[in-house]
Measured scan of single mutants.
Amino acid sequence: PDLGLTQLFADPNLIENLKKNPKTSEMMKDPQLVAKLIGYKQNPQAIGQDLFTDPRLMTIMATLMGVDL
């Protein structure tokens, strides 16, 4: 199971919303991170391994779920 990750990354406004959010806007200036996020739309399971190697993803996930870290 993808634990709902498919829906989190399926939002067509995902990148724009993250660019507008004060907690994630600075991160979204990294083209490699943006490319990763776009890739998760097609393969949400890929985030599982990346969560352990890129701490920014935890902040992004929390933001998408509405959790304040």
Rank of each mutant, 00 (worst) to 15 (best):
M61A: 11
L64D: 01
M61N: 01
D68C: 03
K41P: 06
L64E: 01
D2Y: 02
L18A: 02
I47E: 03
L64W: 02
T6C: 12
L57N: 01
D11M: 03
D30G: 00
L69F: 06
N17W: 12
E16N: 10
E26D: 08
I38P: 01
P1W: 02
Q7H: 14
P55E: 10
D54L: 00
K19I: 13
K23L: 13
L69Y: 03
A62M: 14
M65G: 08
Y40L: 12
I60W: 01
F9Y: 04
Q32V: 13
K41Q: 15
D50C: 05
L8D: 02
L5I: 12
L3A: 14
L37K: 00
V34T: 04
T24R: 00
N21S: 05
N21M: 05
P1R: 02
V67K: 12
I38Q: 12
A35I: 10
M61K: 03
T24L: 10
N13E: 10
T59W: 12
L3H: 13
V34E: 06
D68Y: 01
K19A: 10
Q32C: 09
I38G: 06
K29M: 09
I15M: 06
T59H: 11
T53F: 12
G39E: 15
L33S: 01
T6I: 14
G4L: 15
D11K: 03
K19Y: 06
M27Y: 11
T24N: 01
T24A: 02
P22K: 06
L5D: 04
L18Q: 00
N13F: 12
K19L: 10
L33W: 05
A10S: 14
Q7T: 12
L57H: 01
D30H: 02
E16V: 07
D11R: 02
G39H: 13
N43R: 04
G39F: 14
Q32Y: 13
K20G: 10
Q49Y: 12
A35T: 10
L64V: 08
S25D: 03
M58L: 14
T53C: 07
T53S: 14
L8V: 10
M27D: 02
S25K: 11
K23W: 09
V34K: 03
L3G: 15
D54K: 00
I38T: 08
P1A: 11
K20R: 13
R56T: 06
K23S: 09
L64Y: 04
P44T: 06
D50P: 03
F52K: 15
